[in-house]
Amino acid sequence: MSETPGGTPADEAKTVTPPPKDPMKGFRGVIAGTLIMEAITVALALPVINKLGDGITSGLGWTVLGIALVLLVLCGMLKRAWALPVVLVLQLGLIAMAGALPAIAIIGVVFLAAYLWFLWLRRDVARRMAAGTLPSQQQQPQA
């Protein structure tokens, strides 16, 4: 909250004080950790492709390996506004592989649900922060 000369106490009462610790700061960390777990999970599908499919050097194998690498690279790019939509599009790409390898599609569905849940939580925290109802925004009793 910025101090303005001549500001009235009524003006200060109307503004919502931000929490001392930004709850949105950890969102990127949660997404990055989830991306790493997903990249590992997707890469673990490569032995299945080798055994049941045409091998790791097939188009499906290269595609799965490419998606796993892109997921790892996106961990470092989460500050960019376009990174999260790319993550969601990659989930749709995994789901689209249902015809070739249903296990990959299941991985896509599970992680898509996780990312959508994270986005819903972020929206809820932002709404509560704007309303000033987060526990960290409440006045602490003076002892």
Rank of each mutant, 00 (worst) to 15 (best):
S2Q: 09
S2E: 08
S2F: 13
E3T: 13
P5C: 04
P5E: 08
G7Q: 08
E12I: 14
E12Y: 12
E12V: 15
V16P: 00
T17H: 08
T17E: 04
D22T: 10
K25S: 13
F27M: 03
A32W: 01
A32S: 14
L35C: 06
I36P: 04
I36W: 02
E38W: 07
A39N: 02
I40N: 07
V42K: 00
L44Y: 11
L44F: 11
A45W: 11
L46Q: 06
P47M: 09
V48L: 03
I49G: 00
L52G: 05
I56N: 00
G59Q: 14
V64R: 01
V64M: 01
L65S: 15
G66Q: 04
A68L: 02
A68F: 05
L69D: 10
V70H: 06
L72V: 11
L74H: 06
C75L: 03
C75D: 01
R80L: 12
R80G: 08
W82E: 01
A83Q: 04
L84S: 11
L84G: 04
P85F: 03
V87H: 08
L88F: 14
L88A: 09
V89F: 10
L94A: 02
A98G: 13
G99W: 14
A100C: 02
A103F: 09
A103N: 03
A105W: 12
A105N: 05
A105D: 00
I107K: 00
G108H: 07
G108W: 07
V109C: 03
V110A: 09
F111V: 05
F111I: 01
A114C: 13
L119I: 14
L119D: 08
V125T: 13
R128K: 13
R128V: 02
A130Y: 05
G132T: 08
S136M: 12
A143T: 05
